[in-house]
Structure formats: C-alpha cells, structure tokens
C-alpha cells in the first residue's frame, strides 16, 4: 500500500500537533528527573521515532525502483519523504562525500509554531527535547533503506533546523 494511491488517508494536523506536544511532555517531566533519567527518556522518544521512521520508509518506497547508492537514498529523504511528512522539501543538502550529510530546513514544520515564553536565550534549551523524535524518524528511514547512521540536530531561531547525518560503516 502506498500514500500515493487514490484513497489518500489523512491525519488531522492539529491532532498530531497536540499529540507531539504531549508525547514530549510525557517523556520530559523536566523539573523532577535526574540527568540519567532525562537521557533515558529522550532515548525512548528517539526509539519511537526510529520505529515510526522504519514503517514510513516501508510505506513510502512501495512504488519505487531500487536505490543506486547512498546519495540516492538521501535525496529521496530530502525530496519525497520530507514533502510527505513536512509538506516541503529540504532547503539545503551538503555532503563531504565521506559519509556525512547535512540537511538544512529553514522552516521546519513541527517547530513553526514554537516560540519561547522566556526569551530567545532559553529557546535552544527548551527545544532540545523536541528534537529526539524527528532525529529518530530520520535514523529509522535511513536504516530501513540500508544506511546505518547517527543523527544529530540543531536549531536556530526562529525555526531553522539542521540535521547532521553521519553514516556508520558496518
């Protein structure tokens, strides 16, 4: 089954927005948890993203021919995958041709309504927990398409998002 077939199934965006917020809140009860617990919780979120990403990869590649190389896979992520999930393509893709890819999205959809209530300084710190899930998704997609990697993310206000993908040789 594929998302591109006629009976396009849809999910209410507001529902997703709220569940995403609650998901992160649930795993990041910031006030009363130690650093170790926090790490555990963010890895749990990352794991959820990973599984989601794996399923999505399966679902979205149904109609495609096989990929030729890693760059082809990354391009698929930047174009088709990104526009299905985030309704736009990645704005910039950089690579050092040694297995590191940097994806820049200048207006990351999930963060487009995010704005700190306590000034710009705390913004990065507050946004951090929200990055685990999207990082997990990217890692999940890539791993299902044959690339083992680690994904790191960074944000710049207002809502530019940078994902750094480092492939791991297996």
């Amino acid at each position: 089954m594929s998302l591109y077939k006629q009976d396009k199934r849809q999910v209410c965006e507001s529902c997703f927005d709220y569940i995403f917020i609650e998901m992160v809140h649930y795993f990041n009860d910031i006030d009363n948890s130690t650093d170790k617990e926090k790490e555990l919780k963010s890895s749990k979120l990352e794991q959820m993203g990973y599984l989601t990403g794996q399923s999505l990869a399966e679902r979205l590649t149904g109609d495609r021919s096989r990929f030729t190389d890693n760059l082809d896979v990354i391009k698929f992520v930047c174009k088709d995958f990104w526009s299905t999930i985030f309704k736009k393509q990645v704005d910039n893709l950089k690579t050092n041709h040694k297995g590191t890819y940097v994806l820049t999205d200048n207006n990351f959809k999930w963060f487009s309504k995010m704005s700190s209530n306590s000034g710009q300084e705390d913004f990065k710190k507050e946004v951090l927990p929200y990055l685990s899930f999207p990082c997990g998704i990217i890692r999940g997609v890539l791993s299902n398409l044959g690339i083992n990697c680690t994904v790191l993310a960074d944000v710049n206000p207002p809502n530019q998002c940078i994902f750094q993908i480092k492939t791991v040789k297996s």
Binding site: D17, F20, K113, M114, S116, N117, F123, E126
Partner: peptide, 22 residues
Amino acid sequence: VEYVVKNPLYHSDNDYINNTLF
C-alpha cells in the same frame, strides 16, 4: 490557537503570553 495553544513551549494557561511569534 495557532501560536499559543499549539506552541509546545507554552505550558501553563495562567502565564502571561510573552512569545515573539504571537
């Protein structure tokens, strides 16, 4: 609704809204 309710960084409905986007 868009920029306060859906803003993940606004936690309590009793705080003064101080976000630049809104």
